[in-house]
């Protein structure tokens, strides 16, 4: 075991990791930050997305030791310190962008990255960007509406509805 230290949600945090310890397990087991979910464990579903040095990655497919020293933002770091939801989180609530909530941390992290790169995406761009995030409840329409709303745009009836 090796001590691994990262800046997680703005604070220096340390926990032990084996060579094979995944970033998601280091966050969940080592730091008890269980907001980041493991959905498929095969790099497909996106429930484990965190921001690694500012970019979205699937934390189930990154080794913790490999990114020792990195800056990581998890879903726990998205709301304000006083608990105020981010624009994306609030929009997910307002537009019912979740049902069971399991995929939601990854969806919020991905959507937050999208709006940072592209503040006013089209509906097609939202759907394209979220291709690596799987939701088995909502049929995606309300998620897409939530992201459109979070970008400050009108929320039209979505194309496939």
């Amino acid at each position: 075991m090796t001590k691994v230290t990262m800046i997680v949600n703005g604070k220096s945090r340390s926990a032990e990791a084996e060579g094979r310890t995944l970033l998601v397990d280091w966050l969940r087991e080592g730091l008890r930050l269980t907001g980041t979910h493991v959905g498929c464990d095969t790099t497909q579903c996106g429930a484990c997305i965190v921001h690694l040095n500012g970019e979205p990655v699937k934390a189930c497919s990154v080794l913790a030791q490999e990114v020792d020293g990195a800056e990581v933002t998890t879903i726990e770091g998205i709301a304000g310190a006083d608990g105020t939801l981010s624009a994306v989180q609030q929009a997910f609530q307002d537009y019912h962008g979740l049902q069971c909530g399991f995929c939601t941390p990854g969806m919020v992290m991905a959507a937050t990255s999208l709006l940072r790169e592209n503040p006013r995406p089209s509906e097609a761009e939202v759907r394209h960007y979220l291709e690596g995030n799987i939701c088995r409840c909502t049929g995606y329409h309300n998620i897409v509406k939530a992201v459109m709303a979070a970008s400050g745009q009108d929320v039209p009836a979505v194309a496939a509805e």
Binding site: L52, P56, K58, Y129
Partner: peptide, 9 residues
């Protein structure tokens, strides 16, 4: 290729 998160790694 893949999706945005995969492309970052």
């Amino acid at each position: 290729i893949g999706d945005p998160a995969v492309r970052n790694r």
